[in-house]
Amino acid sequence: MDCQSHICVNNLNVFFGKEHILKNISLKIPDKKITAIIGPSGCGKTTLLKSFNRLIDSYDGVKVTGEILVDDENILHPNIEVTHIRKKMGLLLQNPYPLPMSIYDNVAYGPRIHGIKNKKKLDEIVEHYLKQTNLWIEVKDRLNAPASRLSVGQQQRLCLARGLAVEPEIILGDEPTSALDPISSKVIEEKFQELSDNYTIIIVTHILRQAKRLANYVIFLYLGELIEQGTAEEIFENPKEEMTKAYIQGKIS
């Protein structure tokens, strides 16, 4: 199967021990668009997302079959270098997890890991990405303060800046606004829309309205199976499957 898009999944199966979490998933994620993965909780949304950068590797007793092509490279291949896959993808988790260090060091963490030592260059990177996430004005006078002192909303934007600073091509978000206040959520959503001009964005969400507001492309999962995928209009206005219709109308959750 040839693949034009960044991420292309063929027959993906994920097991945790005896549990079959993802069943035969095949899909394509369009470039430079926002893709939303929706579905009731426990349907495997987060597992799918964490398969993309192989974070599921660190869970006990996990077994993965099938293939995930990122830029035509099967990242599930055992010989692949995971760190360079992960570098291509920024990740935002449900709750912001600032690393236990200063605001500056949080943003500089990725670039430093990938070998940038030059102080001036790091300064530029930090400033650039803090500006891009509207955080610069709020924190420029206390870059050396611990990141844990920021508000939750600020922390999540810092995590976004930290993710962007390794220059990914893809941004993964695991319900990135669910722990935030409405105003911070709005800022993050607006950021995603701006960023979608240059990045491929994939978010997991259980808030249907958020998916409607943001997504260009929607993937609907139910109990580990891919029920339907399509553009946002198709899925929300004109779903083909009964199950999708029922979920969108709130009959199943």
Binding site: T83, H84, R86, K87, L93, L99, Y109, G110, I113, G163
Partner: peptide
């Protein structure tokens, strides 16, 4: 928290870098 490790791993850090720079510090 596991998420702290994931945050660092997701930036492309190796496991040892994650432990050295994030886990040990925490």
């Amino acid at each position: 928290p596991k998420e702290l490790r994931e945050a660092s791993l997701a930036l492309g850090a190796t496991k040892w870098q994650t432990i050295k720079h994030s886990v040990l510090r925490k």
